[in-house]
Every structure is written in structure tokens, then in C-alpha cells.
């Protein structure tokens, strides 16, 4: 596999963030926070009128992008910063850029962007390929 500094990683897109996914993840995370489940709870907290995706799901989208870019690769390290929320109905795309290649170890930067609102998650990752 040929990897060069500056390479763009193929994007990974979720066309529509679904409330059903949030419901499933509230079980996976054992976290029944109603802002992920109940629009009325979101309104009551003054956080808008759409359910809010759990933060770790947004990291998982980025992981999908990285693993698709480097088939058979293994993530060694990853640092994510949460810059804004992702809401039900959003279309999100994870992308990345190679910043270093050392032997079989590739470093990249990444972002997760929401159509119309910009970057909601950014960070760095190192993958053994």
C-alpha cells in the first residue's frame, strides 16, 4: 500500500443521522440521557428542537473512515476534540489527510463535518498499516 504525506483519505458519509441509532447507542453506552431520546427534553434544556447524537458515535464515524482508508490497518492512537453537536437529520462526512509516514505507521488529521454547519469534530490518529 502506497501512502504519501498530503494524501486525502476517502470520505465516509452518513446521509441522515437517525433517532433510531441514538436509541440503540443509549443501550450500548448504558446512558439514558434524554437529550438523545426525547425532543421535549432537548427543548426543555434550551438546546434546540432536535435530538443530539451521542459524542462517541461521531468518533465511530471517523474510525469507519480511517479503517476504510487503510484496509487491514489497526488504529494505535486517536485524539478527538468535540467542537459542536450533531443533530438528528444531519448529513455528516468524515475526511482525513496523511501528515506523516514512518515505516508502517501513518499519522493523519481528520475532521467530521456537518452539511451547512462545518466541522463538529477534529483530531489526529495514528494507524499501523
Amino acid at each position: 500500500m502506497s501512502v504519501t504525506v498530503g494524501d486525502s483519505l476517502p470520505p465516509f458519509t452518513i446521509e441522515r443521522i437517525s433517532p433510531e441509532g441514538m436509541r440503540d447507542w443509549s443501550v450500548f453506552l448504558a446512558d439514558p440521557n434524554p437529550i438523545h431520546l426525547d425532543v421535549e427534553a432537548v427543548r426543555a434544556k434550551g438546546l434546540g428542537d432536535k435530538r443530539i447524537n451521542q459524542g462517541p458515535i461521531n468518533v465511530a464515524y471517523v474510525i469507519n473512515m480511517l479503517l476504510a482508508a487503510f484496509p487491514g490497518g489497526r488504529i494505535e492512537a486517536m485524539d478527538s476534540r468535540f467542537l459542536d453537536n450533531v443533530y438528528e437529520g444531519d448529513r455528516v462526512t468524515a475526511t482525513g489527510t496523511v501528515t506523516a509516514v514512518e515505516g508502517n505507521r501513518v499519522s493523519c488529521t481528520f475532521t467530521l463535518d456537518v452539511d451547512g454547519r462545518g466541522t463538529v469534530n477534529s483530531g489526529t490518529a495514528t494507524i499501523a498499516i
Binding site: R74, I75, A77, M78, R81
Partner: peptide, 18 residues
Amino acid sequence: DVDDGPMMGSSGVRFTAP
């Protein structure tokens, strides 16, 4: 109080094995 809304700031991980 968890009902006051904790927010995720960042998350980092270092794996030694899958």
C-alpha cells in the same frame, strides 16, 4: 448534577492491541 448537562470536550485513546 448530571441533569445539568455534562459535555464531552475531548477523548484520546492509545491501543496496544485490538
